[in-house]
């Protein structure tokens, strides 16, 4: 299914639903990717019914920063 297939259905949605869809897309693009197979089933179910998941952290870093944290943690644990 392509975006062109979906557009008529999206345009037919009530304004509030379209607004919610925009927020969902922004959250997905701005937040870390959440592969559906790693989500708890109840969240996957909620997504399939138009729910919104915002998994962004208030304080976070990028992939390189996260890698640095993991390496530093491994070093800390090795020193214990």
């Amino acid at each position: 299914m392509s975006l062109a297939d979906l557009l008529p259905a999206i345009r037919a949605l009530p304004v509030d639903d379209r607004r919610q869809l925009v927020h969902l897309l922004i959250d997905e693009l701005a937040g870390p990717a959440l592969p559906e197979d790693r989500l708890p089933e109840y969240i996957g179910e909620m997504l399939r019914h138009g729910g919104v998941v915002s998994a962004g952290s208030q304080i976070t870093t990028d992939a390189a920063g996260w890698q640095a944290i993991q390496e530093a943690m491994a070093e800390l644990k090795g020193a214990e």
């Binding site: 208030q58 870093t61 390189a64 920063g65 640095a68 390496e71």
Partner: peptide, 30 residues
């Protein structure tokens, strides 16, 4: 809601550690 713990510049500076000599950089986002 914080992925990791954070110290502001002046608080960390009290340890007398040279920020520039620490070897693991990261960018705080959010």
């Amino acid at each position: 809601g914080a992925t990791f713990s954070v110290l502001p510049l002046d608080v960390g500076a009290r340890f007398g550690v040279d920020w520039n000599r620490l070897t693991r950089p990261l960018a705080i986002g959010g």
